[in-house]
Design a protein around this nucleic acid. Sequence first.
DNA 1: TCACGAAGATCAGCATTGATAATCAATGAC
DNA 2: GTCATTGATTATCAATGCTGATCTTCGTGA
Lengths: 283, 283
Amino acid sequence: MFIMMNKEHNEHMAVSGIPTDMKLLDIHEAARFLRVSEVSVRRYTKSGALRCLRVGGRRERRFEREDLEAFVGANSPTRALAEASKPIGAAQPTLGPADVAAPEFATIEGMPVPWGRHLCQLYETDRGRVQMTVPFLNDGLNAGDACFLIASEPARAHLIEALRRVRGDLGPDIEAGRLRVIDHAQNGSAMLAALDEAFGAAMEEGFGKLRLVGDMAWFLDQGLSGDELVNFETRYDRQIGHSYPIISLCLYDARRFSGIEILHALKSHADTFDLPLSRFLLR
Amino acid sequence: MFIMMNKEHNEHMAVSGIPTDMKLLDIHEAARFLRVSEVSVRRYTKSGALRCLRVGGRRERRFEREDLEAFVGANSPTRALAEASKPIGAAQPTLGPADVAAPEFATIEGMPVPWGRHLCQLYETDRGRVQMTVPFLNDGLNAGDACFLIASEPARAHLIEALRRVRGDLGPDIEAGRLRVIDHAQNGSAMLAALDEAFGAAMEEGFGKLRLVGDMAWFLDQGLSGDELVNFETRYDRQIGHSYPIISLCLYDARRFSGIEILHALKSHADTFDLPLSRFLLR
DNA sequence: TCACGAAGATCAGCATTGATAATCAATGAC
DNA sequence: GTCATTGATTATCAATGCTGATCTTCGTGA
């Protein structure tokens, strides 16, 4: 009683001009916002469906309003990028992110990987670039998944050639829409939109599972900055990577990225840490 | 005086040299920002987990927004290897006396970490350098462990100053041999020998537990190559890091190392992957 | 209709947190 | 200069949130 009064008191008091825009909600307030139990809120964050921050030695959950609103709207994947009017007042009866309902696994080098994961892989030689990705794509093509590939030039030819070598002629796969090479866009936003579009189209064509391999050096080849790359990955992680039945594998050539960029790459692919990370650090 | 010193790296400087965006929050505002009580804010600062400035003869706490934002961590599983550290074999029957003493843990940001681990931590701002290490060393000094520090110059003074700020005068710790600043050697082999010597000496003096914090930029400052660094870390991992009751925390400033070097740093600290890695990727 | 997954409720152990009190010294208003 | 207020420090104690577990209910789809 006293506590609540304490918390809701003076929220809008712009004391001394300090921007109070960063309003964090605790788990109780978040649960009330979503009209679910606190237990469910914990489940959402644990599964990665709902983003949350942590504070203190007890690692209590803190939520930003923006994330809660995004979670409510996460029901319509194809419109994941539309950030127009979102009715936040009346909660929709069935809220449930797509990845919560994906009970199947793909296999990457023997590791079971659930769908809806956004992973990164670091490598430092050309061989490392294809070592994990080619089997991953080959498995997907065999399983009838829609497989997407993004890469700029030396890497693109290298990946395609390596895939062709284990699979033979790729013509049938391409014609059937199982293998799609996506041209990299001019900037991150355009690429996000293109991916959202491509994934939505594949789903409508009846593909139940998607796979993406992206060699992120295309970003550098477009002359884009590291900041823009972080921005792209963060938005992909929040808006797309967990909203489709897709496994996204982002490749980082450690020879081409700086230490800071590698650090940012790791931080924006937290899903990878649920798996044995050492398997994703290739030669 | 604290204030001026701390703002030397701020980009947004007005002509006067005083940063324009320097909005200090008092403890009440900081507590409201984090959605915790003022008592907790005081606890955070006392442990060194949250940086604060002091003003006036009453040493009132003042906070920078950036410090508060850095304190709010990302979501990540909190389970640490309480279970994973157990021997893989079946249930142990009766244990010998040596085994009874074994099951002890240190605590790093709430994570239980067994002794004998060789961990790495990546950071990209000066703030990140001290965020995890200062509480780690402070805990060790409080517990009576022997704490070793290796760093070359800008980092060394920064770490010592940050530790002094939460702990007060370090003279007693140094005189009692609890805190030892080790001069970096000319090359990796000499450093390995020096560390082996220093650890053995501390053990003979009766210290039961050791802690090491090393900012690996000293390697670069010695003009040594990345290959030599890998070699050093690999040998440390094999020969020393697991042979003493020590927790070794190696810091990598992502601003100073290349992508390949960061990749190698990760690969040579596989112990880190047993813990929630995202907690070791700091800002 | 049955099976399945999600949601909700509950239990336990545990460490942190929040509230409160007492003391002390600096601050700010008069 | 006085004097009430504020914040620091230390301490105690109850409440809260986290983790993991089990169990039941509910709605949907096979």
